[in-house]
Design a protein around this nucleic acid. Sequence first.
RNA 1: GCCCCCGUAGCCCAAUCAGGCAGAGGCAGGCCCCUUAAAAGGGUCAGAGUGUCGGUUCGAGUCCGAUCGGGGGCACCA
Length: 946
Amino acid sequence: MLSGAGTTRGTSMTEQTAEAAPAHRYTAELAGEFERRWQQHWEEHGTFHAPNPVGALSSDAPLPADKMFVQDMFPYPSGAGLHVGHPLGFIGTDVFARFHRMNGRNVLHTMGFDAFGLPAEQYAVQTGQHPRKTTEDNIATYLRQIRRVGLGHDERRRISTIDPGYYRWTQWIFLRIYNSWYDESAGRARPIAELEAEYAKDPSWATLSDDERRAKIDSRRLAYLSEAPVNWCPGLGTVLSNEEVTADGRSERGNFPVFRRNLRQWMMRITAYSDRLVDDLDRLDWPEKIKSMQRNWIGRSHGARVRFASGEHSIEVFTTRPDTLFGATYLVVAPEHPLVDSLTADAWPSDVDDRWTGGAATPAEAVAAYRLAASRKSELDRQENKDKTGVFTGSYAVNPVNGASIPVFVADYVLMGYGTGAIMAVPGQDTRDWDFAEVFGLPIIRTVQPTEGFDGKAFTGEGPAINSGFLDGMDVVQAKKAITEWLAERGAGEGTVQYKLRDWLFSRQRYWGEPFPIVYDEHGVAHDIPVDQLPVELPEVDDYSPRTFDPNDPNTEPSPPLSRATEWLNVELDLGDGPKMYRRDANTMPNWAGSCWYQLRYVDPENTDRFVDAVNEKYWLGPRPEIHGSADPGGVDLYIGGVEHAVLHLLYSRFWQKVLFDLGEVSSDEPYRRLFNQGYIQAYAYTDARGVYVPADEVVERDGKYFWQDQEVNREYGKMGKSLKNVVTPDEMCDNYGADTFRLYEMSMGPLEVSRPWATKDVVGAQRFLQRLWRNMVDEETGQLRVSEAEPDEATLRALHKAIAGVREDYAEMRYNTAGAKLIELNNFLTKAGVTPRSVAEPLVLMLAPLCPHIAEELWQRLGHDTSLAHGPFPVADERYLVDDTVEYPIQVNGKVKARITVAADADQEQVKAVALADAKVAELLGGKEPRKVIVVPGRLVNIVA
RNA sequence: GCCCCCGUAGCCCAAUCAGGCAGAGGCAGGCCCCUUAAAAGGGUCAGAGUGUCGGUUCGAGUCCGAUCGGGGGCACCA
């Protein structure tokens, strides 16, 4: 037994049962015995091997008529092992995969490991054990745990991102991206060589120096080095992507402060794909929640840039509401805006409002003080304190639409990182501007007629334009169009689209990641490693840690561990102009790199010539418009995982897929056609009076209160975790109940997408069902089969076919909880009947197989079949038994059920009505009067309105 | 502050898409059988009018509008 927690009682009870129970009862021991046997059988027979059309994994036998690619989100092999929450989605995909496999599909279902990552590296830093060793040990544990659950994986397709044979191709894809540029006019990525060829057509190209040409090319690459503000996290010793930084400016992992620093780092030009990443969401069968999170993150907004003259300068603002231009009563620029210094006037105007000066004698003093204060505010301060602050620059700008002179302010409610870092403030239609205008006593002009009865401040709704000259009377959409055209004609602005999405920071200062396939020459110029020299393998090092610093000290520099591996770092290579010394890139790729393309490697894991063979890729992942409609992007048929990767993995992966698609490397332009988010298994945890967690399995409930060792404890609801002392493991469940019981229980707890509390005491219900089903087919005393060869009666056939029809539909719709209930119902029918006809037992076993494959295989074999049921057949309902001869109608009088009648199923509405009115109880209630109305709902009920 | 999802027996959930008898299934509970005893055995019984208010309808758990409670996402993004 792996874990001692919570198993003492269970084990002794199991042993006791085993002693007392009939020899052939379906107990945890018996289940465990044949579960191990069937797991071995499947492995030895390659039961779940899905043949490829071509290559190493192809087969001589003809391919099945249809395919199905089912995938779980790439697990990280944590050292803590699995708890019962982890396999929930895995079982969900397994049931789906098994159902479709039984229906004759060629089903690809496997699982590999996203194995680079911080925990193994941190463990290595503490213990000196190589992260590869830690990771491989964890993978072995993980595989042992999932094997016990009976997942039908094609184990030939197991991959791991840390294998050089895998990350060779991760590096190869990086180079493909590096050697590409985005052609805006074509709307797709193209090889960088084609850009160079286009540049070369221009005679001036030849006049440029090598360095100038290189710089021009490099600035267009989809993977590029950039000296730009990045998220520097001293506590982790690495930089982070925007997606890895929480809204309050801390690292998602470790919760350390993150600072903006200018550093030279690798970036991925994901912004080139902003529009396609938004637009193509419409072509995906994904939960709306995830789509809206991605839309939100990309943050596309349509608007206009407008230029306001201020002295010799021009201040460009971005607005989504150009229609409100007549109501712009002041401008605001961000404290970091490059024009701030030149806009700052020498002296205040004589009539300056006291509120505008910040108490300073000159604008320069006021602005300097304000900028200093703003720079000291953390992201968190800026967010939490929404009181409007700012100072007047002393300058005025001209509103291009009416020539009005309006003051220019510096205020930190305008962010340099979005739009142009400057806004036109329209307090009448914007709450933030209204708040600011109130504090500073600025004029407010309404330019949209508020709806009647509106008594709020800023009006952000729709309405006709007012106080807006030639726009008056237009609705918002018309006015936007008209003013945008007006501005464009005068060169004062133009329509534009703005995004929140930023390029993806792609380098990390860690050891345990993919090295970059890049070297630098003596001039610091980057060169890519020739493809035939990949992979660039990680060197052995003595010290795995990056330098970490005081988490609160932003004035520190990243120092990656690979920069100390000097022998590896400095390398002699022949890159086409003879052997020369180069210096390797000491950064590694972020954890997300390996998971950006793993579905492609699952398809062709052993291919050494290509990352995936084109024929295999098209077969498993290609678009299938004939089935999914003309807009079908292709991709994995069902992808199940948690919602936490909504804007990380799922966005990055889509981006890589699109680049590879543009370059002609793959046939689908989306990686995951259908996405499904499973819920989480949650658990109760208990704390004592000191707030210390106590073992959850030792807590007892009395009168709605909870006690541990006779002291009352406080109940919390949430995650399962070691520190919360409430972990339940799949190993315990397999030991105490068997894997099939565990699978059935997890799938029966509720719909897959819903989070639910774990309740070990409820698991017995699933076991009892399997016990009864077993007993209906196998004699508990002798172990002999006890099915009847006699033909079942009509009622039994009706129960069977009703179950078949319902269960089939439930599996197809992933309603496993109701599928399980229907199987229990059918089994209860057999229990009551006291006899199990073979012609019912066999379909029942087959229908049980996706949920509980081991017991189903065992019974199938005992029923006399010598091949696995993994490939079906799955029963098909006979329509004959789905329609009843007679129907019982409840009779409502004024909406309340008062009587029941039974009529022939083919009776028409008039006949049903006649029988209903003739019913004695109904006649009595009507008292001889004519009903006002009689409603007959065919097959359902009759309602009489008296 | 804005947006999304969810509130059904003591508990987990069906029925909500397409309005038509509130119950498929499980846990816990009562009773009976089996057992020297026990149960993770067998059988059987009971239990809520669907968070609240209002509307539409012959008829509402289901549709619409409020409101309360829980969960999640976004948040000075112009």
